[in-house]
Design a protein around this nucleic acid. Structure first.
Lengths: 218, 218
DNA sequence: ATGCTAAACGGACTGTGGTCCGTTTAATAT
DNA sequence: ATATTAAACGGACCACAGTCCGTTTAGCAT
């Protein structure tokens, strides 16, 4: 796992050329990239990471990023399409790794374990993931309701739906997967933990409860 | 029901004097309001409604609103605190009515029916509500994660938690209520219906399924 | 080397939410 | 009537995301 390219994470829409096929990792991307473009992408990503751990995600503005990287603002947008796009790119390695783990990794998260166990593991891992990368994830949240159509979101949704079917859930697995999915969104998890001081373990336990009931219920 | 003042809907924070006690309805609010202020509030709300059904919520900018109402931009912000605050005010009547129905109205939504039935009814009504006022609700969504601390959201959350307890759910009803709650958020519902063409009845059915499993499960 | 062209560049510009602060005014006291 | 004052006003101003378009340049063909 790790370097495998799985599913594009960037939103399909606005972002011109952006990078090759979908910006999964921050690596060289499609190789047909002009030298200057490649150099600037590297410059920008490095600058972005620096700025973020100097001042936090919220304080990163596209203008200061451009300045720090020594490129024009237009270049930043050409590359990443939007602020959210930039954040997605920054997240892409972590995201890809998570994808790799639940699709190909060892059980109980990966294939091999019973569906319910995988479901439970999925939530637990996701909660941990959000606690680690949540700020970024929140900043990467595309507004409006096409948030759900970001490739990565579609993938989790499909995965959850598939697990539900495996577990024998026949009641509208598509919508059920959606319901479970929103439950794990960064906004809610971070809010619970940061504002209400809920312990992560309690979140995990609650997810297990929820997943179990959805699978076994009625 | 209808004219009863229940729970403030505006976010408690930023909005200066805004209106008396919490802007539940678009009526006169607290009576200690200067004439000019009252007149301007009226002017602004009327103008906002006009602009919205002329061009839709998204096209309403604070500047054009000010212009249309014939007041300064500063006045708009003094009154409503933010764009989201304005939208909440516009929603407040509908919101108050919904609150009245699930707290004091006839069963199965109101008190009198078994908890599970009330839970199911709550979801069904909420889905209908979102389909009617969803655009506005979406625009009223305060960003960041204090979205969950808006008084109205807190109220639903408490209501759901209470119903879960009534129904005998002992597994962390607070978090369970939260999980159920996000499931009904405008973003998701509108996305399902508008983008994926899911029939509202199917959403309702899925909610029933979910609620039932949470209550009876394990 | 030279010329060509598509891609990349950069920064001025726009639209919009939100703030600031000097000015006006409604309500009240005298 | 007049003075007083806290509230309300208004629009210039700021920050920031995102766009536009004239200019530069990498890569290639000759």
């Amino acid at each position: 796992m790790g370097a495998v390219s799985l599913i594009p994470i960037r939103p399909g829409a606005h972002a011109g050329p952006a990078d090759g096929q979908g910006g999964l990792t921050s690596r060289p991307a499609a190789e047909s990239e002009r030298r200057d473009a490649a150099r600037n992408r590297e410059l920008l990503l490095r600058a972005a990471r620096e700025l973020i751990d100097e001042c936090g995600v919220d304080r990163l503005t596209m203008a200061t990023l451009a300045q720090r990287a020594g490129v024009g603002k237009g270049t930043v947008f050409r590359r990443f399409g939007s602020r959210a796009g930039l954040m997605m790119t920054l997240l892409s390695d972590a995201e890809a790794q998570f994808q790799g783990r639940f699709m190909f990794g060892p059980p109980p998260l990966g294939p091999g374990a019973p569906a319910l166990e995988r479901l439970v593991a999925f939530g637990a891992e996701r909660i941990g993931w959000v606690l680690e990368y949540g700020e970024l994830a929140r900043a990467a949240d595309v507004s409006a309701y096409n948030r759900f159509d970001v490739p990565a979101a579609v993938l989790w949704h499909r995965h959850l739906e598939w697990l539900l079917r495996q577990a024998g859930v026949t009641a509208d697995p598509w919508l059920m997967a959606g319901a479970l999915s929103v439950t794990l969104e960064p906004e809610r998890i971070l809010h619970s933990v940061r504002v209400h001081g809920v312990a992560p373990a309690r979140l995990v336990e609650s997810w297990r409860e929820l997943a179990t009931r959805v699978v076994k219920g009625a």
